[in-house]
């Protein structure tokens, strides 16, 4: 209960904090939707008679907006400027603050990006079955957790290097390529598609978008949950090693 009220307060704090930078949030929205929009234009030109392509990409845009993570800018900067020390002295897990800020930014991006999704859907005459959208909700929630864990894990490298942005940038490129944004996984060459389905990135974007756009749900939440477990263990281990280093060297 205490954790929940602290998290709620933190989200409220961060919503307020980011409200002063709405213009910057708009640039983040544009940055988030550009790649899926390019994918949409290319693949709907290749398959002009297939409405599932546009439906899929409209869903990808929404999933991307709802699940973007920026811990390389938020958390890592606190490691660099030493303000992480303030967090360490608070009687609460540090990650609670990181999650609160993450959720606040996602809320803003979803709010500011919703008109783009709506306009794209109307312009391309895209409709969704509400049953599919409802079915996709657990998948989107797990995608949000997966992306947070993956970005947070890479951002933890800030304890060792001051070049965290290329590290996270490389991770984002992998997610773009294998996650279903560059191309729906089903359209990748056979070998690549098999690799993509095994990696966690498909669960971050492509899978929930496929479910929302009407693909038969085949119980693939287990695959997402498996990767959530793996990334949670990895992030916890790297956090422990990183904080040991931070508290040995200081800032």
């Amino acid at each position: 209960m205490r954790t929940l009220s602290l998290l709620t307060f933190r989200i409220r704090q961060q919503v307020l904090e980011w409200s002063g930078a709405w213009w910057f949030l708009l640039t983040l929205v544009v940055q988030a939707v550009i790649a899926p929009l390019i994918g949409l234009f290319i693949w709907s030109a290749v398959y002009p008679d297939d409405p599932s392509i546009t439906r899929y990409y409209v869903a990808i845009i929404l999933v991307t907006l709802m699940t973007e993570s920026f811990e390389q800018h938020t958390f890592s900067n606190r490691v660099y400027d030493g303000t992480l020390s303030h967090e360490l002295l608070r009687p609460q897990p540090v990650v609670l603050g990181v999650i609160g800020e993450n959720l606040a930014i996602r809320g803003w991006l979803t709010l500011l990006g919703a008109p783009i999704v709506l306009v794209t859907a109307i312009a391309l005459h895209t409709t969704f079955a509400w049953q599919s959208v409802l079915l996709a909700i657990p998948g989107i929630a797990l995608a949000a957790v997966l992306i947070f864990l993956f970005t947070f894990l890479l951002s933890l490298t800030a304890f060792w290097t001051d070049r965290v942005h290329p590290v996270v940038g490389f991770g984002s490129q992998l997610a773009f390529l294998f996650g279903g944004t560059a191309a729906p996984i089903g359209l990748l060459p056979d070998g690549w598609a098999r690799i993509a389905e095994a990696l966690p990135f498909y669960g971050m974007h492509g899978l929930p978008a496929e479910i929302a756009s009407g693909k038969q749900y085949d119980g693939s939440l287990g695959y997402q949950l498996g990767w959530v477990a793996v990334l949670t263990i990895a992030a916890a281990a790297v956090w422990r090693a990183g904080i040991r280093r931070y508290t040995a060297v200081g800032s």
Partner: peptide, 20 residues
């Protein structure tokens, strides 16, 4: 430390929650 957009009262209220 923490969120600079908050008012002094908001920040103190956060401390109240944090420190029970």
């Amino acid at each position: 430390g923490g969120s600079q957009e908050l008012t002094v009262m908001d920040s103190l209220e956060y401390q109240r929650l944090l420190y029970d």
